[in-house]
Design a protein around this nucleic acid. Structure first.
Lengths: 222, 222
DNA sequence: ATTATTTGTCAAAGATTTGTCACTTATTAA
DNA sequence: TTAATAAGTGACAAATCTTTGACAAATAAT
């Protein structure tokens, strides 16, 4: 289990560290104090979860979140201070998983961490993994089939990432739209289908892994 | 599901009502037009969620929010007038769950309602359960018999789901129709039978779990 | 500024599910 | 035992949903 704590208040940072360490005995925990360092580490590592303060020196937690989401769906729990501005407030639109308002009880944070991890595939996310005929590296945002890299664009990667984190689980069209496109999307009903079509095409032989669940959505499964 | 709409503009209030009613068919919805009445109702009822306008005659939405928070954590979605960032910040400090700026699309409001409810939903449906020769996972919408997954379609799953939640209990035809088809269903008498037939077929050896209760309905039992 | 790539829209075609119906079979009260 | 009512069934039709290609719009790259 690997966590990243992004919190400029070093006392708070330490408190979170202690609680996490206590709950996940063997966890690896990185502590950083600003957004730039957070992103650096994020791109070099694969975390199971990120605890992210909104108010940071330099780039904001909001921006960190945005950049993380460009890459993948690493679970993010946002810690919001009392006087946040509008953008930060709308973290949910960016695909964060939980919001905890300061001043928070560390216990509550831990509870949310556990809840979020339970929702996700909790196995270690780092390195190359195999699923059926596919290989993928979540940290590097790469997918391979027959030793060839599939060149996925942003939307396709987001879709794939969502699927891989929810193997065997039926995802409703709404869920997919919300996770990949965000709450504010009210576009054409058929857009999702089109993107599924494109991802399937790139998946080639393995396109059948994306199963249509009639009237509900899709499911990713061998 | 029980909602409270607090909005002094009666047109807007009605629009919200309609959309909620449409999305949560069986919801109970109270409509009020000022803060005082809202609080009265709040203290007499338990709501799943409150839609709260900021600008109200008499006491403001904020005051309502404050008083609600002194009692409990009922989810609150606030509706604020345009470009009212200050208020948003205040709202989040008071522990509201989402903010929607006017003029808002009712669809967005509904999406936020769904998201908030999902966030609060603590029912644990995960994990494989066993019933007789069947295994099922409510979260994943899956049923297995002899290690093989039964490929149920939407209606069949709804039926199965209803049965599994009412093991050993006789469900009248009316109840089933209402729960699976919704209150407004006035279709053919034989439709339910047909669907039971189809579900039984897929259940194979375990089809006898669905027992006919003559003149009344069905019962799901080993 | 031009070109390439990605993303979104749409309508027609293809699939699946769901509803209907006529008819058969089962149940039960008298 | 039978008449009356209820439930089951297969075949078909209707409704609904998904796929797909072609194209347009938006965005990124050169």
């Amino acid at each position: 289990m690997k966590f990243l704590i992004v919190e400029d208040d070093s006392d708070l940072n330490d408190i979170l560290y202690d609680y996490l360490k206590d709950t996940f005995k063997e966890a690896l925990i990185n502590q950083v104090y600003d957004g730039e360092t957070a992103l650096e580490l994020f791109h070099e590592n694969t975390y199971d979860l990120i605890l992210l303060d909104v108010m940071l020196p330099g780039i904001s937690g909001f921006d960190v979140c945005k950049e993380v989401r460009e890459s993948n769906n690493t679970p993010i729990i946002m810690l919001s201070a009392l006087s946040d501005d509008e953008n930060q407030i709308r973290g949910y639109d960016l695909g964060i998983d939980e919001f905890v308002k300061k001043p928070y009880s560390p216990k509550l944070v831990i509870k949310k961490v556990e809840a979020v991890l339970q929702r996700y595939d909790t196995t270690d996310n780092s390195g190359l993994k195999v699923y059926g005929l596919l290989k993928y590296d979540l940290a590097k945002c790469k997918v391979y089939r027959d030793f060839k890299e599939l060149d996925l664009n942003n939307k396709e990667w987001k879709l794939f990432n969502l699927f891989i984190h929810n193997k065997g689980i039926v995802l409703s069209r709404d869920t997919i739209l919300n996770k990949v496109w965000g709450y504010e999307y009210f576009g054409d009903e058929r857009t999702l289908d089109t993107h599924i079509k494109r991802l399937r095409k790139k998946l080639g032989d393995t396109s059948s892994y994306i199963k249509t669940v009639y009237r509900i959505g899709y499911k990713f499964e061998k």
